[in-house]
Simulated assay, not measured.
Amino acid sequence: MNPTLLWILSAGLVLVGLAGIVLPALPGTILVLAGLVLGAWIDDFTRVGWFALAAIAVLAVLAWLMDYISAMLGAKRAGASRQAVIGAAIGTVAGIFLGIVGVLFMPLVGAAAGEYLARRNHQQAVRVGISTWIGLMAGMLAKFVLAFMMIGIFLVALLV
């Protein structure tokens, strides 16, 4: 296959992966990783070797873990009940079907609803919902930082 087309595919995977950090239907970190591995493969791993790819893979795993941990840590930090954590998880899954607004705000709604059902305290439910949302946004920011670190390691290995 034409190397130029492969480089275009590699860059496309990375760009779609960056969009996937925000968009729920796309596995962002995995697509960034796939694009970078494809880029290394195009050059037969001569400039981007296994050490650089291992570092990139470690960052990808860390970014992937951010998806699952960030919102729940925010909820736990606010003293959330077990029901609030379950509500945040359900809200996250439900948000996938509601697009970007759902992804951004359904974990908040789910955590607040779960906390309200557990303790019947409006103020605590709102605090838990907001803490969950802050955790989710912090996790998304961390995933962006890690994805750009992955790209940076790749570019340094490729160009130096």
Rank of each mutant, 00 (worst) to 15 (best):
49 G>V: 05
153 I>D: 12
34 A>H: 09
51 F>K: 14
111 A>K: 04
99 G>E: 12
60 A>W: 00
31 L>R: 08
60 A>G: 13
45 F>A: 03
49 G>M: 08
44 D>S: 13
132 T>I: 03
16 V>Y: 09
109 V>G: 04
124 Q>T: 08
37 V>M: 11
14 V>W: 00
7 W>P: 03
89 A>K: 11
55 A>W: 09
21 I>C: 11
133 W>V: 01
33 L>Y: 14
14 V>D: 01
27 P>S: 12
96 I>L: 14
86 I>E: 12
144 F>S: 07
7 W>C: 05
80 A>P: 04
52 A>N: 13
55 A>Y: 06
33 L>F: 15
8 I>T: 12
64 W>V: 10
39 G>W: 04
34 A>T: 12
54 A>G: 12
38 L>G: 07
151 I>P: 04
79 G>F: 09
65 L>Q: 07
97 F>H: 03
47 R>P: 01
1 M>T: 11
56 I>T: 01
1 M>K: 10
69 I>D: 06
84 A>P: 06
130 I>G: 00
47 R>M: 13
80 A>C: 13
146 L>T: 03
136 L>I: 03
52 A>F: 08
99 G>R: 11
46 T>L: 15
4 T>H: 14
156 V>I: 08
123 Q>M: 05
108 L>N: 00
117 L>S: 06
91 G>S: 10
82 R>G: 11
42 I>M: 06
37 V>T: 13
26 L>F: 12
130 I>L: 13
76 K>W: 07
42 I>A: 08
159 L>Q: 09
13 L>Y: 04
57 A>K: 01
159 L>D: 06
91 G>Y: 11
139 G>L: 05
83 Q>L: 15
83 Q>I: 00
151 I>A: 11
62 L>C: 14
42 I>S: 03
100 I>G: 13
54 A>F: 14
34 A>G: 12
45 F>L: 09
98 L>S: 08
125 A>K: 08
110 G>M: 05
144 F>H: 13
58 V>F: 10
149 M>D: 08
119 R>Y: 04
14 V>M: 02
42 I>Y: 01
57 A>H: 06
157 A>C: 01
122 H>E: 13
59 L>N: 00
135 G>T: 03
96 I>W: 12
57 A>C: 09
99 G>L: 13
124 Q>V: 07
65 L>H: 05
52 A>W: 08
53 L>H: 06
47 R>K: 15
106 M>N: 06
63 A>W: 01
34 A>W: 15
41 W>N: 05
93 V>P: 00
28 G>T: 01
27 P>H: 11
124 Q>G: 08
76 K>M: 15
86 I>Q: 11
148 F>W: 12
87 G>D: 01
89 A>P: 04
153 I>G: 02
45 F>I: 03
69 I>G: 04
29 T>D: 08
8 I>E: 11
3 P>Y: 11
149 M>R: 10
28 G>I: 00
85 V>D: 04
63 A>Q: 02
67 D>E: 15
